[in-house]
């Protein structure tokens, strides 16, 4: 499994796709930088409000899209040159291959999240935010956003493994990501929509509250863990039985 991870990491490192982890944190950085939310009642809460602003574009749009792109990409170079054939005739467990691919994408999303925090810290330093950084809120928001990407990741990896086309899984992803802006407003559907979950978990509690953001953390966690388990097991089972 470690060898497999090394091999996969090697293939990924030599491609340029990992550069995409910089895109969203960079854009969020500018959004955060240009944001002057001088509302008196938020005095002393600049960290959280700024992060809330930055998270809107990042979590509604970029996190779901990036998850799909990365998932497609770790399968793309296998589909393109007959890599599956070669990889699966080597002494490796199919299950491990699948899990390693998923870990790799999770790692990339994780790095994106870390860069996002760094962007926030730089903004705070430039603008002179209070010295007591609310690590609790930031930490849980970042980790929550990452965690909420997992069901989506499992789903996208499933689709990407099944279809040899690179564009089709991406198209699906875009189609389902666009309505996000509407769905996060829905209290009924929002929590169950995999593409909306990153946003719901990433928004800090205190800044704003509307629509599906009112859903309790427990509901979200159950939905996320539940749907992750379903998508992951379905994908894994499919991959293990797939005839190459």
């Amino acid at each position: 499994m470690i060898a497999l991870f090394k091999s996969e990491f090697y293939k990924l490192r030599k491609s340029s796709i990992w550069l995409l982890i910089f895109v969203s944190p960079l854009l969020s950085f500018f959004i955060g930088l240009l944001e002057f939310n001088e509302v008196p009642q938020f005095e002393g809460m600049q960290w959280v409000t700024t992060m809330g602003m930055m998270a809107i574009g990042h979590a509604i749009l970029f996190l779901p899209l990036l998850t799909g792109v990365f998932a497609s990409f770790v399968c793309r170079y296998e589909h393109a040159g007959g890599g599956w054939k070669q990889l699966l005739t080597l002494p490796v467990h199919r299950g491990n291959v699948y899990v390693v691919k998923m870990l790799l994408v999770a790692l990339l999303i994780g790095l994106t999240q870390l860069l996002f925090v760094m962007a926030l810290l730089v903004i705070g330093w430039i603008k002179g935010f209070p010295a007591d950084i609310p690590w609790n809120v930031i930490g849980s928001s970042i980790a929550g956003g990452w965690l909420a990407c997992m069901p989506l990741l499992a789903l996208q990896l499933f689709v990407s493994v099944a279809w040899s086309s690179f564009a089709a899984p991406l198209a699906i992803n875009v189609i389902f990501t666009i309505p996000n802006m509407l769905i996060v407003n829905s209290e009924r559907f929002g929590p169950y929509y995999p593409w909306a979950q990153p946003f719901l978990l990433m928004m800090p509690d205190s800044s704003e509250s509307f629509g599906a953001l009112n859903a309790s953390a427990e509901t979200l966690f159950i939905v996320i863990i539940g749907s992750f388990a379903v998508f992951f097991l379905a994908g894994l089972l499919y991959f293990q039985r797939k005839e190459i």
Partner: peptide
């Protein structure tokens, strides 16, 4: 599979890697 080397139909390769890197990705495994 550990004792078998194979080439099925069309050659398999990773286009974005060089020949040596292709072999390295397999060698690790």
């Amino acid at each position: 599979l550990r004792k078998v080397g194979s080439l099925v139909e069309y050659p398999s390769y990773y286009g974005h890697l060089t020949a040596r890197e292709n072999l390295e990705a397999v060698r690790v495994l």
